[in-house]
Write a protein that binds this DNA or RNA. Structure first.
Lengths: 207, 207
DNA sequence: GTTTGTGAATAGTTTCACAGCA
DNA sequence: TGCTGTGAAACTATTCACAAAC
């Protein structure tokens, strides 16, 4: 194996592989072949082999990939092994759903804090996380939180992002349906739910 | 302009352009240049020009693109002009947030029906949509609904998808963190929120 | 002067086919 | 025999640069 930069598309698939690997591992399986994993996840076997080849040969011909190493390796590459902590801003419908969402834990995430503007919510607890006043948001700098999740109305998204950046946040998951400008050192991933739904009819036969 | 198949990546960006165009149009603007739109949406001007070139020259050199035609054109390509109707399955935390979500309307969508298994929810109304018994789900065939939104627990996702397909659904937006197998004629887009969050640390400097 | 539309160049990704290892 | 790892080929997408249009 030689040095390779891992392609972005491969990085995008790593969490998929991780999910599959964890799933199998929990069932007591110890090795998995690219063909088996591919069937489980709806991808192609050669895609998996190529992707895995970017970060080391730990597969065994005739046997497959050892799940334990695979999980450890992907966690390490994605830097999930440090137990990343996230702050949620906006505890409305969507924010509440995110707080209750069980899926983050699989990847080692913790939503360590939640903020809102609504005086009636501040001081209360949702899914075990106390809701704090958004006016105090910039103080999270001291709390070793690297990720921000924006679930505020569109009009407040850019300002929220700016405050998060100021507070030392390095990565933002943005649920507002808009582009937010941040310094280049900060990575933003925007999930616009309506936008994904909007491309569905294009791919549908007739109507 | 010559015939071109529209690349998938372009299709993925069309809703972004549509959002920007609608935004400007609501402000009374009539024409927009690729540079202006690009600045607004965080993409590159030449990317916009190339993308638009796949579906006809309606831009005017020195002036830009007429917003009204642009909106009409994108709506037509994405087949949003027929007012697509969606059915939501699973009215939990996430499902409720989706029902309350204002963003769908911008793209001409309507969530026309909602289903759940919980007897306490069935018969009630959420965000104006009555919640029906999931046992009746396959009857939606008669109601001219083309899209399905799956917001049920992972364990029920595959079965829900199968029922939707049986009921004549042609496209599925899946929020369960798993691959769901469907016939090739049905398009599935999976949004795994945790998975998107999981790739964020990879792109963050240090930690 | 400004801005589009697009061929050509570059970059990135997927697919294939098969040598080589267990 | 079964499966990995990978070079090469095929394909897809992005970026550039500039002629033509207003």
């Amino acid at each position: 194996m030689r040095y390779h930069k891992i392609p972005d598309e491969t990085v995008r698939r790593l969490p998929v592989y991780l999910r599959g690997a964890i799933h199998l591992s929990q069932q007591g399986v110890e090795h998995v072949s690219s063909a088996h994993l591919a069937g489980l996840l709806g991808v192609k076997p050669w895609q998996i082999r190529k992707d895995f080849s970017y970060f080391g040969d730990f597969g065994t011909p005739g046997v497959g990939y050892p799940l334990e190493s695979l999980i450890k390796q992907i966690n390490k590459i994605l830097r999930l092994d440090s137990g990343p902590r996230a702050v949620l801003v906006g505890v409305g419908n969507l924010g509440s759903a995110l707080l209750a969402f069980p899926g983050f834990r699989m990847y080692g995430f913790e939503i360590a804090a939640a903020f809102d503007t609504d005086k009636r919510k501040i001081g209360r607890t949702k899914s075990g996380v106390p809701i704090e006043d958004v006016a105090q948001l910039r103080r999270i700098r001291r709390r070793r939180i690297g990720l921000g999740i924006i679930a505020v109305p569109e009009a407040a998204a850019q300002e929220t992002a700016a405050t998060l950046v100021e507070a030392g946040i390095k990565g933002i998951l943005n649920f507002s349906p808009c582009y937010i400008a941040v310094p280049k050192r900060v990575k933003v991933i925007t999930i616009d739910i309506a936008m994904d739904l909007a491309r569905l009819p294009y791919y549908m036969p007739s109507s």
